[in-house]
Design a protein around this nucleic acid. Sequence first.
DNA 1: GTCTATACCTTGATAGAC
DNA 2: GTCTATCAAGGTATAGAC
Lengths: 189, 189
Amino acid sequence: MGRKGEENRQRIVDAANTLIYRKGFTATSFADIAETCGMPKGNFYFYFRTKEDLLDAVVKDRMKRMAVHLDKIYQDFPDPRLRLHRIVNAPLLDRHEVVQFGCPIGTLSAELGKQSKTGINAITSMFTVLLLSIRHCLEGMGLNHDEAERQARHVLTSLQGAANLSHAFKDGNWLEAEIQSLHEWIDAQ
Amino acid sequence: MGRKGEENRQRIVDAANTLIYRKGFTATSFADIAETCGMPKGNFYFYFRTKEDLLDAVVKDRMKRMAVHLDKIYQDFPDPRLRLHRIVNAPLLDRHEVVQFGCPIGTLSAELGKQSKTGINAITSMFTVLLLSIRHCLEGMGLNHDEAERQARHVLTSLQGAANLSHAFKDGNWLEAEIQSLHEWIDAQ
DNA sequence: GTCTATACCTTGATAGAC
DNA sequence: GTCTATCAAGGTATAGAC
């Protein structure tokens, strides 16, 4: 596939990514995606064999973007405590979108987890990467392995719950309050 | 509508309730529901004008069941601390289902919140009822109004996050560990 | 590689016999 | 009230011209 082909493929993935986030996977149709990226839907089958294949590509793309984001934090913040502050603060950077459409990882995994779609393993691995990053920071701050794992799970749980309730109530204060608590807790460690 | 009619209506609501929980609202079709409750789908339109009307009935039914459940806890446990223990423990009673299909309130509100379905307000009110119950317990335990609200939100956030991650990872330990922490926290208040 | 046209199925919803 | 038959619309996926 040439350069032009790669570009088109990426345009499809980007449009699908946005729409799946905003409407959900089942509720997103090829017609929607075609309209958003300005391509006839017949073209999709040149790049992806099925709708699920497109979903896999979208999840891989999200995974890649998250890895880039985490890498940047790792480079910019060598200190594990400051690093952790940045990681838990990330949802607030997209506060408005989280209120409107929920957590991009959480809402998709919730939908795919009900059915037994293949994409569920991939999206869950995004949670795993986040968990490992958080645990690594906590270990760097002096917590032993078991305690770091325990607390990292608690941090991820809080973020996930706060994103969900912010979305349900359409109120960013849930997210803000919970992340504020996390910042204070980090400084107390 | 006579007794027989009420029965049939309830059978439809029950089947829809189960399927919407297991597959999601969009992914649940009238054909699915008809097969589950053993009625031709043509009948549904005698009881409900649209699929959204049926959704509203399902949410109202869930709301009613939760109210009954909470009432029972209120009668059986006059002490606010014991009461709160029971409330936060509730998800563990359906542990297996939560792992398979997620939180019945959280996953549905996540789906409906993305679209602007009318049912979103009703399902969110289930969170509100839970929040008020938790806050009421905390006030009964001596916390002042603001602090009780703050902590009640934190409790609900933890439960919601734990249910989501249990579902995503298909691992009930997330739920168990978080609820265990909540029990310990309650006893420390 | 890209596009149009369309096959084929399932969806929510309706009509009308009984 | 209950059922069968069917509708129009929209879904994924395919065929084939260019």
